[in-house]
């Protein structure tokens, strides 16, 4: 997260505005409409796109950080569930993107 915030064209304030204005029940289609119809969101998306195409190292770092973040939380939760219920409860790290998309009702 720190690497993308430090990139040129993306500001912490803009991203925070985006995450506050869009609710937790955001869908892919909702974001797509938002990008098409909202100038502010479209500008942030444009900056994000430019950053993604220009900063290869930053993208790699973001991918690794996100994977590490997921593994860390999953390991912690699994550890707790193992103690509470003597079994793991959350999806394992090997869960596919299709399963996550199905869970979030994505196409």
């Amino acid at each position: 997260m720190s690497s993308i915030n430090a990139a040129s064209g993306l500001s912490q304030l803009e991203l925070s505005t985006l995450s506050v204005s869009l609710g937790p029940d955001l869908t892919f289609y909702g974001l797509s409409n938002e990008v098409q119809n909202n100038d502010n969101t479209r500008l942030i998306f444009s900056n994000f796109e430019n950053w993604l195409k220009s900063e290869e190292d930053g993208v790699d770092k973001l991918e690794k950080e996100a994977e590490y973040f997921h593994s860390l939380i999953t390991a912690e939760i699994n550890h707790l569930y193992d103690q509470w219920y003597a079994t793991t409860y959350v999806p394992k790290p090997g869960q596919s993107l299709a399963d996550i998309a199905k869970y979030l009702n994505l196409p």
Binding site: I4, L31, A66, F69, H70, L97
Partner: peptide, 30 residues
Amino acid sequence: ATAARGLSQIIHLWKKATASPILPIFYWFV
């Protein structure tokens, strides 16, 4: 945890394929 997993996997897929759309990555990031 789900969003972090989705973001890392969609970036991984995006790097492997050429001319993939950016919006899914942006979606998981948001």
